[in-house]
Design a protein around this nucleic acid. Sequence first.
RNA 1: GCUCUGAUCGUCUAGUCCGGUCAAGGACACGGCCCUCUCAAGGCCGUAACUCGGGUUCAAAUCCCGAUCAGAGCACCA
Length: 573
Amino acid sequence: MATDNKVKDAARKFALKNAMDYGKANQGAVLNKVIFAFPEVKSNMKEAALTVKEVVDQVNKLPTAKLEKEFAAFAKEFEDADKEKAEQAKPKLDIEGAEKGKVVTRAPPEPGGYIQIGNAKQAILSDEVSRMYDGKIYLYFDDTNPEKCKQEFVDGIKKDFSWLGITFAKEYYASDHITEVYDAGRKMLAQGDAYVCMCSDDDVKAGREKKTECKHRSQQAQQNLSLFEDMLAGKYGEGQVIVRLKGDMKSDNATFRDPTLFRIKKDEHYRQGKKYIVWPTYHINTMVLDSLYGVTDVIRGKEYEIWTDVNKKLIASLGLKEPRFHYEARLRIRGNTTAKRIIRNLLKDGVITSWDDPRLVTVIALRRRGIMSDAIREFVLRAGFSKTDALVPMDMLLASNRKIIDPIAKHLFFVSDPVELRVSGAEGIHARLRLHPTADYGSREYLTDGKFYISKEDADALKVGDIVRLKDLMEARITDKSHGVVSAEKAIGGSGKIIQWVPAGDKVECSVLVPGDLLLDDEAYNPDSMKIWNGRVEGYAKQLEEHDIVQFERVGYCILDDKMKNQFIFISK
RNA sequence: GCUCUGAUCGUCUAGUCCGGUCAAGGACACGGCCCUCUCAAGGCCGUAACUCGGGUUCAAAUCCCGAUCAGAGCACCA
């Protein structure tokens, strides 16, 4: 058979490669490659296996030199294949059934706090999906809890998203659509898919636990409808009455046991004032509004997955368009938190003073801390869609960030815990230092007066008689270390440790805030989460603008946080 | 407790739908070398994983069954 020889040749080729890679060819591995190349051998696996075994045995008997020589003929071919393999990576964002130009996603923040990296992940994923399909993304403020929502957060969230590079085609508020949701409620009441329940909070809870229906559940539609109008008219107070979905009180899924659709809240709303006292809850809101605005793909946390039964019932009962739901694991950062509840408590306790405290992973804090928005995007995209619970170390974000800031950060010398260094013979030297080793940002210049500052750490490591290299300036020989000052004389040549220095005649006193893990492993506040380095930086720092990112050589990347106070924040090494 | 969901290098993931190109690819971290008047960046190399137990098959990370572990939900929050 002609096939026979073809198979034999291919088998030999694969066996050679296999032997080169692993020292010895393996029958199973070679057979698999042969099957892939010639699927027709599947009809007679026994014969194919035999052929391969024969070839593999022969190849394994080959002396190394012969093996290498024979393999050389195919080396190029495999090189290309290996390269291709190395390139396939990146998580995919494809959506089954999605069509170009027909995708609408949305970011649904609740303006009850600033958004954090977890919200950013969902929004970026949504943005990326809509771009991929030439679709649109909307900004939807889910603001139906008058207790929590504030204009401050609306403004902050908009700023944060725009900084993240997301452009929304539309922006709308749940609280502007309350009447539409009321109509949806009326429809459900009229159809007998919902009812007005006057049980107490505790009774509702007990009923759910015991899986028993309450007497209100069997009220007539007419009565429910008029009770609902009474609610709207303000005849009831908070906690007296709610509208519940008629799910299934016997369901194993606890969320389906008649969840609340509307409740009474008399707090003043930041946007609607005292216009409404009956407020819809999350599920009916989003279902109605997503349908109204034609959202096709809802990307949200998997904590909502258990509400699928409720969503389905709502959609069926109201005749809504059903979007595709995509559930995502929560993104958690090791040593930190995305929970608004915890952040609010920390704020209340006064251990942190603002939503942009550099230890936080809110978007506003990350920005202040010198994380670039592209780094966040890359970081998020690298994880892709995933339902696996991930506890990611901050290092990953910082690594993405470092690659972006490295080419733009000017280099400066900073010394912490400064120690004076006097060098005789080092007066009147013109020092000229490049601002970046490769990029052309020009240079900084100083005229020396023989006095410098070096860091305590470097000073401690020096011994009398040592030669030390002041980077880009000169060598010095240490002559004395008593009296808290290091004395030295200018030296020519000799090699020693290279250290950074600050000219005493042109320096800026500054501090560097070093954020660490905010929380301990047990989620308690870490009292050591913020360190401060005090030191001196070269006079060139006076020319920096607030939010400029620099690299303090041998220390790390820092961002100028407050120009008045000469305060920097440490970004990463 | 009940219900749902998930499980691949130390970490985050690709591959799983449709079994064979996977003795498992990438990134971060780690280690080594090169470059360098920074402990950075860049280049090269290396260490390292299919949760466990059964089954089906010529062939299982992939399909089936069971166990284990982890996360989420059980609000008049979202």
